[in-house]
Amino acid sequence: MRADQLLQTHTVWWGGTVLLCVEGELDIATAPLLDQTATSVLAAGPELLCLDLTALTFCDMTGLHALRRLTDQTAAAHTRLHLAGLHPRLRYTLTRLKTLSPWTPPVLQN
């Protein structure tokens, strides 16, 4: 399977806010797709990026690194980042990362 078959992204804009929905698997094969989409979205200069992970079915360590890069990208672009629709296990992992490393994940919402 091609990476774009394993991970799809959809964006919806309203004003200075963009909703980026991620569907499928976020792993070594697909993380570059999220990176590319995020770069494209952030180039337009939104005030807020809401990353909806409701339809994310898998996330490995490479996916976690992609989320960290997204956090860094949004900070550099002076864009606020919110994560929404997190599976409880991913929420737990991100919360643990917050306590175990200097990285602070963005606001976590359901």
Rank of each mutant, 00 (worst) to 15 (best):
L33T: 04
R68E: 13
D27R: 05
D35K: 08
M1C: 09
T74D: 02
H10G: 08
L48A: 07
C21K: 15
L94V: 01
M1V: 08
H10V: 11
A84C: 11
L7A: 03
V18H: 00
T9M: 11
T54A: 12
P105F: 05
T57K: 12
N110H: 14
L56P: 03
A77I: 01
V18K: 00
Q36W: 12
R89N: 11
E23A: 15
L70R: 00
A55H: 11
L48T: 09
T37E: 08
A44N: 08
L100I: 05
P102H: 15
F58D: 07
H78I: 13
G15A: 08
P102V: 13
D35E: 10
T39Y: 13
G24E: 03
L49Q: 04
Q109R: 15
C21E: 13
E25K: 09
G16L: 08
A77M: 03
P105T: 01
L7Y: 03
D4Q: 14
A29V: 13
A66E: 04
Q36H: 15
H87A: 10
D4E: 13
R91G: 06
C59G: 02
H65C: 13
H82K: 05
M61E: 15
Q109L: 13
A43R: 13
T99K: 11
A29P: 06
A29K: 15
L26N: 07
R68W: 13
L20I: 00
T62W: 07
D72Y: 15
T11A: 08
Q5T: 06
L53P: 05
H87F: 10
T79E: 03
T39L: 14
H65E: 14
C21D: 12
K98G: 03
